[in-house]
Amino acid sequence: MVTQPSTTPTDRIRPDGDRRAAPGLEARTALRAAGNAPRPQIDLRGKNAVITGANSGIGFQAARQLAAAGATVVLACRHPGRMAEAARAIRSENAGATIDEVTIDLGSLRSVAAAANIITDRHQHVDILINNAGMIGGPGWRTLDGVESCFGVNHLGHFALTGLLLDRLLAAPEARIVSVSSTAHRVARLDLQDWPDPRTDGTYRSYAASKLANLLFAHHLHRLIAAAGVSLRSIACQPGWVATRLLSARPRSVRHRAGAAALRAVGAFIAQPPKEGARPLLLAAAANVPSGTFLGPTRWWRTRGPIGPERPSERARNIHAALQLWDLSVELSGVNFASLAASAVVQRRIGGVSESHRKPGASPAS
């Protein structure tokens, strides 16, 4: 049994008010603030939480707070040294914390499969999976599997990891799959070619497309869960504008460095610290939020402020695009979510969409 760590109450995960949002990514009911009234602390002892990209930024902040609530936290990171430093930092705060470390490169499907095997060998159930890791690549960047880097790391690697951990997620009561998107999804173009092999190189265009893919994935996964009648929850969130390493300077094109510098300049005025940016992830992971909800900050053009349900863009709600993306992801990754998607009955119940809409040549437009 993991002992309850000693932290200040403000560092513990707490529900952020009354959650009565209707299921579905289009949930509109507000999460009402609880004001100054005392809020119960969440006890996550006995639960296993896997977080990708947990060595820094909002992933690290989510990991440390889940550990403070008693969860066994699996840090899934690309850099072993930085992951070990993050684990030491969490243990130094919480003497009773149980931390596992698994190396994963989301840009390599072989690495994803190896990491999933390690997690399934060590843990009989996964109660919380937070698909958090993200990157902004440069023009022409590809993963080890040959797909555009933002799509490969931000979406495809997480798609494969989720599918490979599906049996462990189904073994837990009311497990959560949290997909971390971004408000950048609102400016993404809905074009399948923008994902594995973009027609036009564009650093931020590719990033926005990958964040749209995150939401389409969460949307379709929620529909599969509802149709199959299992006790999983697929919850999406976006952290707002957070001061992280995502826009750190790297030797890329002059145009990219200029764009990153401009965004950092704006961020200096409105960006919030990673601890605040982690709040949507924590609420999606531990609060009473129904499957299908999309959470994010509600003020300053959705960049910061109280967390509430957010209506995703029209493109993110496009069921035909979600189906096409799902089929493309299965084809590229070889992971098919058989426990959820193999049943023809389940497929017929997903919005009445015929197989003709799932062929690669079908238009994703509404």
Score class of each variant (00 low, 15 high):
T3W: 06
T3N: 04
Q4F: 12
P5T: 05
P9W: 05
T10K: 11
G17S: 09
G24H: 11
N36Q: 09
N36V: 06
P38F: 02
R39K: 13
I42W: 08
D43H: 09
R45Y: 08
A49G: 06
A49C: 07
V50N: 03
T52C: 03
A54T: 01
S56E: 11
F60C: 01
Q65V: 01
L66F: 05
A68L: 12
A68S: 15
T72G: 06
V73S: 11
V74I: 15
L75R: 01
L75K: 04
R78Y: 02
R78W: 00
H79G: 01
H79Q: 09
N94S: 11
N94Q: 13
G96S: 13
L106D: 00
S108E: 09
L109T: 06
L109Y: 01
A115C: 11
A116V: 14
A116E: 08
N117T: 14
I118D: 12
I119S: 04
I128E: 11
I128L: 14
I130R: 06
N131K: 00
N131M: 03
N131I: 01
G134A: 15
G138E: 09
R142D: 02
R142E: 11
R142V: 11
L144D: 12
V147L: 03
V147M: 05
E148S: 06
C150S: 15
F151V: 00
G152F: 07
L156R: 03
L165T: 02
E174Q: 14
A184D: 03
V187N: 08
A188R: 12
Q193L: 11
P198E: 08
R199G: 14
G202K: 03
S206V: 00
A208L: 03
H220E: 09
H222T: 09
R223Q: 15
A226S: 14
V230P: 01
S234V: 10
C237R: 01
Q238T: 03
W241S: 13
A243S: 12
L246T: 06
L246P: 04
R252Q: 10
G259D: 04
A261M: 12
L263T: 07
F269W: 13
G277K: 02
R279C: 00
A284Y: 02
A286H: 09
N288S: 11
S291D: 10
T293W: 04
W300G: 00
R304P: 03
P309N: 04
R311C: 06
R315F: 05
R317V: 06
N318S: 15
A321S: 13
L323C: 07
S329G: 00
E331Q: 15
E331V: 01
A338Y: 02
A338G: 10
L340F: 12
A341I: 10
R349M: 10
R349K: 15
G351K: 07
V353M: 12
S354E: 11
S354M: 02
E355T: 13
S366F: 14
